[in-house]
Design a protein around this nucleic acid. Structure first.
Length: 577
RNA sequence: CGGGAUGUGGCUCAGUCUGGCUAGAGCGCAGCGUUCGGGACGCUGAGGCCGCAGGUUCGAAUCCUGCCAUCCCGACCA
């Protein structure tokens, strides 16, 4: 491909609408353009990268026995009513009606459609297992789309669904997908981590997320320095053992704490460490009042709380609710005498006593509180987020925190959908059984954004060879110079003949302009053909990621080029090919 | 949906507070000339119902009201 005939509208200045790196660079590198909020056109270079990502996904999915198909984007509402998600899904589901006034939606995911297909076509255990996937545009009407491709409303996703006849088969399918995902992200040349994840609204028992590691990631990952434990902070369980501590020897005592709303204020005022103060957080969980207690120096983990409560929705109580439940203003809630439907405490609160808590009285706290003696806790659970001070829950190692971008998620669904939609088969005994399902997603367009978040510098994108729209660009400096032109074309044809993915920058532009453009778009390898080099029978090859340049003799250029290319591939953890 | 901000040539912005003359700059674009290994320079030129709709005023990009759009901060997610 010649750049002069291609279409990469680069921007010299930062677009005002883009804040995050990937969004900014995708726009500047002429890879995407916004059509409307959260909806983007993939320009040729961006689309080419997406195709490369998709191809790697296809290859690995196939390797692990998944079969590609393509389902409709528009889905009938009736299917969603079968599973109850027509009501449950919320406003992210874009619903509309056709001319006959029938309900439809644009698919944000395809459990219903695939389950409907499979229940019609599969009736015997002999037809199982089956794993079907597609790469398709999805639509979720996000409350707030942002960060360009990172969280668009329309996005490209690979979604796979497995159907098995028993738990062992389902476990095997899950295992294969896990392997396929590891292989996919390795082949993309990304630094990533598979972590244990919360199953969230999709439900099911086991779940892993695949995180591309990047400082700008929104998710926090807890990893162990010694074993292979890695989990989303939302999920990472906290190890907490030890005997219950004996009852506090002192009776509760009310103290005056005027205007002291926060834990740090109270601790400072009473001159005690924050860990001696209890945080009492009040929530509205599906309309019921809930109090959750953690140590003052800890962070409550809302995902854990939600799971413990088995709640559909969980919201911090409003100021009005707090006043109603505690009888005091914000900041004076405590477990003693609190009138809520349910009160839960973090596990570690059993290990100590003599707490300072809110008194449920304006401007007052209680000292010497013993939870067992003075309050009615409904249960002790793992409610807080793991910290660097905690031991690894699997071994004695220490916990580290890393940031990541979620690009893949795999779930064991069990029979949630197969039961509600009657996706049944006959087993060897002729007994009807629900199929056991799994689902496996990769945000294809998000992978592109994540790749850029992970690999960029001040000059622009640094694509991995696998994701780059072109692995190599040949910069013909001054293409009006016939010798330069001829040599550039020569190299171009030779590389094409060797199957190298190469773009020829034959534009009639000044050298600096072209260098800047090539750095911006982030081609991993730049071959610079200039009059100066030609005279000495050399061309220069630059590694985008390191900036290192290699002068290669024109004669036997291919051999020299292969070496540099190999170096670059190795840098991204890629093997030959 | 709540909080904040912004809408002015294709892009980035000034001008708005304190209303007034022909609405500006840089980049980009077109033509000519010079230049040609890190986003060149000179000259000439095209391009704007100042987000939309009302209102105030002799006069509105500027003041008022309403609406729309986009971006940023919180609850959702690949």
């Amino acid at each position: 491909m010649r750049w002069s005939r291609y279409f990469i509208p680069t921007l010299k200045e930062d677009p005002a609408e883009a804040e995050v790196v990937s969004h900014r660079l995708l726009l500047r590198a002429g890879m995407v353009r916004r059509l409307t909020s959260g909806i983007y056109t993939y320009l040729p270079a961006g689309w080419r990268s997406l195709l490369k990502i998709s191809e790697i996904i296809r290859r690995e999915m196939t390797r692990y026995h998944a079969v590609e198909l393509l389902m409709p984007a528009v889905q009938p509402g009736d299917l969603w009513k079968e599973t109850g998600r027509w009501e449950a899904y919320g406003k992210e589901l874009l619903r509309f009606r056709d001319r006959h006034d029938r309900d439809y939606c644009i698919g944000p995911t395809h459990e219903e459609v695939i389950t409907d297909l499979v229940r019609r076509e599969i009736s015997s255990y002999r037809q199982l297992p089956l794993n079907l996937y597609q790469i398709q545009t999805k639509f979720r009407d996000e409350i707030r789309p942002r960060f360009g491709l990172m969280r668009g409303r329309e996005f490209i996703m690979k979604d796979a669904y497995s159907f098995d006849r028993d738990e062992a088969g389902a476990a095997q399918s899950y295992e294969w997908m896990h392997k396929a995902y590891v292989s996919i992200f390795e082949k993309l040349g990304l630094r990533f981590r598979a972590v244990e994840a919360d199953t969230g609204a999709i439900g099911g028992s086991l779940s892993h997320e695949f995180m591309v590691l990047a400082d700008t990631g929104e998710d926090v990952i807890a990893t162990c320095s010694q074993c292979d434990f890695a989990a989303n902070l939302e999920k990472a369980e906290v190890e907490c053992q030890g005997p219950d501590c004996p009852e506090c020897s002192l009776p509760p005592e009310q103290v005056f704490t005027p205007g002291m709303h926060t834990v740090s204020q109270v601790a400072g005022y009473l001159n005690v460490p924050q860990r001696k103060v209890l945080k009492t957080l009040l929530y509205d969980a599906d309309g019921r009042s809930v109090a959750a207690l953690v140590r003052g120096d800890r962070e409550l983990n809302e995902v854990k709380l939600k799971n413990v409560l088995g709640a559909q929705s969980l919201e911090l109580a409003s100021k009005e609710q707090v006043e109603k439940w505690t009888g005091a203003g914000l900041g004076f809630a405590g477990p003693v005498g609190l009138r809520v439907d349910r009160m839960v405490a973090d596990l570690e609160l059993r290990l100590e006593t003599d707490w300072i808590t809110g008194a449920n009285v304006e401007d007052a706290h209680l000292m010497h509180v013993d939870l067992k003696r003075d309050s009615r806790i409904n249960g002790y659970h793992d409610l807080r987020s793991i910290t660097r001070e905690d031991p690894c829950p699997r071994c004695a190692g220490t916990i580290r925190m890393t940031k990541g971008i979620e690009v893949g998620h795999i779930f064991r669904l069990g029979t949630k959908y197969s039961r509600s939609m009657h996706a049944l088969f006959l087993d060897e005994q002729g007994v009807e059984q629900p199929m056991i399902m799994g689902c496996y997603g990769i945000g294809v367009s998000r992978v592109l954004a994540a790749c850029i978040e992970q690999n960029h510098d001040d000059h622009g994108i640094i694509f991995t060879p696998a994701v780059a729209p072109f692995e190599t660009v040949i910069i013909a400096l001054n293409p009006r110079d016939e010798l330069v032109q001829k040599n550039a074309r020569d190299i171009y044809s030779r590389l094409i003949a060797h199957g190298v993915d190469v773009l020829l920058d034959d534009r009639d532009e000044r050298p600096g302009f072209k260098f800047k453009d090539c750095d911006l778009v982030g081609f991993p390898l730049q071959i610079v053909v200039g009059a100066r080099g030609i005279k000495n029978k050399v061309v220069e090859v630059k590694e985008r990621h390191s900036g290192q340049r290699h002068e290669l003799p024109l004669e036997d250029f291919w051999t020299g080029f292969q070496k540099v290319r190999q170096r670059v591939r190795e840098h991204f953890g890629l093997t030959s090919g």
